[in-house]
């Protein structure tokens, strides 16, 4: 009797979250997949059914048009390539800004280290949207940066920074920086100081020690941080919409436009499917790199 109760309880604890995730996480992807093969219609819902019963027989209407359309209209290809480009360069920039910070924090003595770490995490807890908004006030034509540069006399006319790729990069690096720093820090803090001492004792310069010891050892942190920036930036919507110009195409923004402005659900679904495939590749690459690292 008691055993049965325990098994029931066990089953309950397993079943509730599993069913929740199946219903609200896994099945939605099947729905997207299904609708990506439908035809757009002006109706409710605005897409054709995938199968119909005609005279008692089931007739499938699989429609490849949405995928073909994405391939033919260069807009989508451009948006995908541009998203990858922006994600790639912002990852590099975040790494360049974040690595010295993570290293500095990891090498700091204890009370200072915790405080600095807290300062890295704190902006993450405030609103993402408002942190992007802060940059609009700084970068716009009559913004803080332009006023400052005019005042010290470096420039005579305000620079146009808003609605450019520059603004997009700044906002991305700014908002995603903690995601780069935290895994890097977690890795660098474990670095054995004796290895660095040994290296300098044996006559290596600080720069050589960095490139031959610190950097290779921190590789897993670099990969993890880069992935946490690269993957979500591909699908970024808020930043290109608020900071980018009309020509700064990104696929997340394109999906939004397709859905909300053009009300073309099937094409939006097809865009989402291709996006998923593109994102799976770096994640798989990271997995295999991590597994290799674990083997060594």
């Amino acid at each position: 009797m008691k055993k049965r109760q325990i098994n029931l309880g066990r089953g309950f604890v397993i079943a509730v979250p599993t069913l929740w995730l199946l219903l609200f996480f896994l099945i939605p992807f099947l729905v997207i997949l299904k609708i990506s093969f439908a035809e757009p219609r002006i109706a409710i819902p605005p897409y054709s059914p995938l199968w119909e019963t005609v005279n008692g027989a089931i007739k499938f209407n699989i429609n490849w048009e949405n995928y073909a359309y994405m391939w033919e209209d260069s807009l989508y290809l451009k948006a995908f390539l541009n998203s990858l480009k922006i994600a790639f360069f912002s990852t590099i920039l975040a790494l360049l800004v974040g690595y010295p910070m993570a290293y500095y924090i990891a090498r700091s003595p204890e009370p200072k280290r915790s405080i600095l770490l807290l300062l890295i995490v704190l902006p993450f807890w405030t609103s993402f949207l408002l942190r992007v908004y802060a940059w609009i006030g700084i970068l716009k034509t009559k913004g803080i940066l332009n006023e400052f540069l005019l005042w010290i006399g470096i420039i005579d006319e305000p620079l146009i920074m808003m609605q450019t790729d520059f603004a997009v990069y700044v906002a991305i690096v700014y908002t995603y920086l903690p995601f780069m720093i935290l895994p890097l820090y977690a890795n660098l803090v474990k670095l054995d100081g004796r290895l660095l001492e040994a290296s300098t004792d044996l006559g290596a310069s600080k720069i050589a020690t960095f490139f031959r010891i610190t950097l290779p050892l921190s590789w897993p942190g670099v990969l993890a941080g880069s992935m946490l920036v690269f993957v979500p930036v591909i699908g970024e919507f808020v930043i290109p919409t608020l900071m980018g110009g009309p020509d700064s195409l990104m696929i997340g923004k394109q999906l939004w436009t397709e859905f909300f402005s053009n009300r073309d659900w099937p094409v939006a679904s097809a865009v989402a499917m291709v996006m998923l495939v593109i994102m799976v590749i770096p994640i798989m690459a990271l997995r295999s790199a991590q597994n290799k690292g674990a083997e060594i």
């Binding site: 939605p28 992807f29 997207i32 970024e236 919507f237 679904s269 989402a272 994102m279």
Partner: peptide
């Protein structure tokens, strides 16, 4: 990406 989660739900 949030756009995919949002759309799929």
């Amino acid at each position: 990406p949030e756009v995919i989660t949002g759309l799929s739900l």
